[in-house]
Nucleic acid binder design. Structure first.
Length: 756
DNA sequence: TCGGTTCAGAGTATT
DNA sequence: TCTGAACCGA
């Protein structure tokens, strides 16, 4: 036991060994958060304060859940199976499987991923004859998910106008459709589980008494419903141990509410607020930068990172003329690092938005530097995998219309849109699913439909006695999928993936019972539920864990990812690119203070990824959406202490604040309507100081006029260039003449003189 | 039913 | 600029 607690610092030790009461641990980046969480669980169990059975630990990602379980297992020689460790969705799924009847779900309910959900909504809108111009499926999807994340069923959603009322109707119709088909979406897992506990006193009390200790990771990322779920599960007697970092809250856009931290402290009368501020990851200068930056945010719980690892190197800052040159510099720097003996895989290139990866990839590719991009299509999201899963889902649940429609004519069986429309009408009339309705169809297409349903029935019968991987293999072959891809010229990869699906099923079967996603195996009342089939469990697994994207994980390659994707990771060297106003902070966020603060937290996350070396980079111009965008360097750079920075290019004066307020990075270019460029709200001409102008021209290469340049026009008087488009004879500039307003002037025509 | 063309839109993302 | 979805002709 002393071994368990060795190597913990004083604060960590205090957190790990807290008495059984509610606690909030404010865990800074790199402060040993996961260690505290897992050691606490090991401590509680090994001291006999709680049985594994009485522990519930919840995370947001499968990766985090796996890591947590692995670390607990490494610390404890016991069977961790009785513990509930998993994602919110995984745990809710587990609960709903065990109590599907009480939850009003069929035993073999299927889980819709975001893609499936969108398809279901499109189908609904079409069937209801809704104008999808007025109600774009994506908006409806967002509306539904948002409502569910707030814990609101249709009757409780506030709708003040006709449009909202219609959305609420669609929400209700969507829920009805899901219920009819025996499917649930991600948010529904949470909501259904919450309602189950809320309505069923016996069940609620059972779980409340069972879970003596509930531990939550990344608490700042919880949404309203997740918080309520935790509250309900904790009841009066459990100890809720929440770990989080308000400064790393970067998911407000998907419903996360940092306010849950303060609410938790208040509502649970948290007596123990422990701050973990000692950082074991980064050198001092990096942390000082992070601290300085985040201090610009208001409404913080308050925390300051420190290290005893020494100051380390200064933070390097680099200005480039264009995004392409920035990318080229990244390549050179990576090469230099590798030359000095750094591993490529310990270098990360971060960016604010995915679109930025293109230039960097291009440069790395051309230079022959191995790289790996995070994100993209994941294994279980691939079309061929989705097709195979659709067949498997139909075996489990013939009411799954989404699955039916996905494969009824794939591979092609001559069942076209007309047939399906007739079938959907028949199903609606009969109040049944498509599969059931297919049996009663007449007409010429009836034979083809019957052929399909017979195929599914046959597959079901043939696979009854097979093991899970055999079922998958059988279905892939006999459904015609394999033959279809064999006849396709470029089907080889898809066939490989389908074979990989068989392997995934085998691996799942082998691991089942250990990690998350497994069906419940506990004592009452969970065990009272009939064990679901391995296939049903595998299908849940496939929905809840989309799997890896892209191979090459082990390779020694430079890591490219968004800042969001980098959260939770760390690298020896980090290069943050695109630090420009409008991009980072993103222009869609700067309007509201909340948005800007979240961007700043995002920057804080980016900075704190670096262990030893940090580069911050920006470019004067960037090609985005096919246009050249002229930008001003990010305000975040100017919020860092100058003495910690080492400029690799001459440091120019910061742009005046008014530049950002006005247009936050000018967007100009060919085809962009002039009206899109926003003028400074005051309408006054913007006059950069002489120093600013010198700075602005420092990297000038042949562009006579540039954004920020003061000019004089014979008729309009003095103004400032706010946008440039085209080149040569076609070049035009947009000038803010203050009282005269914004004008587009062709340089070949207008006589403009530079001033200042 | 497929393949080519046209058009809009382009932030971040886990389950 | 680039992508994905929608649309049209064979």
């Amino acid at each position: 036991m002393s071994k368990l607690l060795a190597h913990l610092n004083e604060r960590q030790l205090a957190a790990v060994t807290l008495p059984a009461s509610h606690a909030l641990v404010l865990a800074g980046a790199g402060s040993g958060k996961t260690r505290v969480l897992t050691t606490r669980i090991a401590w509680l169990i090994s001291t006999g304060q709680v049985a594994p059975h009485g522990v519930l630990a919840v995370t947001f990602t499968n990766k985090a859940a796996r890591e947590m379980l692995a670390r607990i297992s490494a610390m404890l020689p016991i069977d961790t199976r009785g513990m509930w460790v998993g994602t919110f969705h995984g745990l809710c799924n587990r609960m709903l499987r065990a109590h599907h009847r009480d939850a009003g779900l069929p035993q073999s309910f299927q889980i819709l991923d975001a893609q499936d959900q969108l398809a279901a909504i499109k189908r609904l809108l079409k069937a209801a004859g809704v104008d999808d111009e007025k109600f774009p499926p994506r908006s409806v999807q967002q509306f539904v998910n948002h409502a569910k994340e707030q814990g609101l069923r249709p009757p409780r959603v506030e709708a003040g106008d006709d449009y909202s009322r219609r959305l609420v109707e669609l929400y209700a119709a969507y829920d009805a459709q899901c219920q009819r088909e025996g499917v649930v979406d991600f948010a529904e897992l949470l909501l259904r589980s919450h309602e189950l506990l809320e309505r069923n006193q016996l069940l609620r009390e059972h779980y409340q008494q069972r879970f003596r200790h509930i531990l939550v990771d990344e608490f700042q990322d919880t949404n309203a419903l997740q918080y309520r779920w935790l509250k309900l599960l904790a009841g009066e007697s459990a100890a809720l141990f929440a770990v989080g970092d308000d400064d790393q809250s970067i998911y407000a856009f998907r419903g996360a509410d940092v306010a849950n931290m303060a609410a938790f402290e208040r509502e649970f009368r948290v007596a123990h607020l422990i701050k973990l501020e000692q950082n074991y990851r980064s050198h001092g200068n990096i942390l000082d930068c992070a601290n300085a930056l985040i201090s610009h945010n208001s409404r913080r719980l308050g925390k300051s990172l420190w290290t005893d690892a020494g100051h380390g190197e200064p933070v390097r800052v680099r200005e480039s003329l264009t995004d392409a040159q920035e990318a080229q510099w990244v390549v050179e720097e990576v090469r230099a690092l590798v030359g000095e003996g750094w591993a490529r895989s310990d270098v990360a290139v971060l960016y604010r938005s995915n679109a930025q990866s293109r230039v960097i990839e291009h440069a790395l590719f051309s230079a022959g530097v191995a790289y790996r991009v995070y994100g993209g299509l994941r294994f279980f999201e691939r079309a061929e995998i989705k097709h195979a899963l659709a067949y498997l889902r139909l075996l489990e649940n013939p009411d799954d219309d989404g699955a039916f429609l996905r494969v009824v004519n794939f591979p092609a069986r001559g069942i076209g849109a007309r047939t399906l429309e007739a079938l959907q009408d028949a199903a609606r009339f009969a109040g049944s699913g498509l599969f059931a309705a297919a049996a009663g169809m007449g007409g010429t297409a009836a034979g083809k439909l019957a052929g399909f349903t017979a195929l599914v029935e046959r597959l079901r019968a043939e696979t009854r006695a097979l093991s899970l991987p055999e079922v998958v293999e059988h279905v892939i072959e006999r459904s015609g999928l394999l033959a279809h891809y064999r006849s396709e010229r470029e089907g080889q990869d898809r066939i490989e993936n389908l074979r990989e699906l068989v392997n995934a099923a085998a691996a799942f079967l082998a691991e089942e019972g250990g990690a998350s996603g497994a069906p419940p195996r506990d004592a009452q009342p969970d065990a009272a539920a009939p064990a679901s089939t391995p296939l049903a469990a595998f299908l849940s697994h496939a929905s809840l864990e989309a799997g890896e994207n892209q191979a090459g994980e082990g390779a020694d390659a430079v890591q490219l990812m968004t800042v969001h994707a980098a959260k939770g990771l760390e690298f020896d060297a980090v290069i943050v690119t695109g630090l420009e106003e409008g991009l980072f902070p993103h222009e869609n966020s700067v309007a509201e203070p909340e948005g800007l603060e979240e961007e700043r937290r995002l920057m804080y996350v980016a900075i704190t990824r670096a262990r030893r070396r940090l580069y911050l980079s920006f470019a004067q111009t960037r090609m985005l959406h096919g246009q050249t965008r002229y930008s001003v360097r990010s305000r975040f750079l100017d919020e860092l202490p100058a003495e910690l920075l080492k400029w690799l290019t001459p440091r120019a004066q910061a742009a005046p604040a008014s530049w950002r307020e006005g247009w936050g990075g000018a967007w100009e270019g060919i085809g962009r309507p002039a009206g899109k460029a926003r003028a400074h709200p005051g309408g006054e001409p913007l006059r950069p100081s002489a120093a600013d102008q010198r700075a602005a021209q420092r990297f000038d290469r042949g562009v006579a006029f540039r954004v920020g340049q003061g000019v004089v026009h014979a008729r309009f008087g003095e103004g400032v260039i706010v946008g440039i488009e085209g080149s040569g004879d076609d070049a035009r500039v947009q000038v803010n003449f203050g009282r005269e307003g914004l004008k587009w002037l062709a340089l070949s025509v207008a006589r403009l003189e530079a001033v200042g």
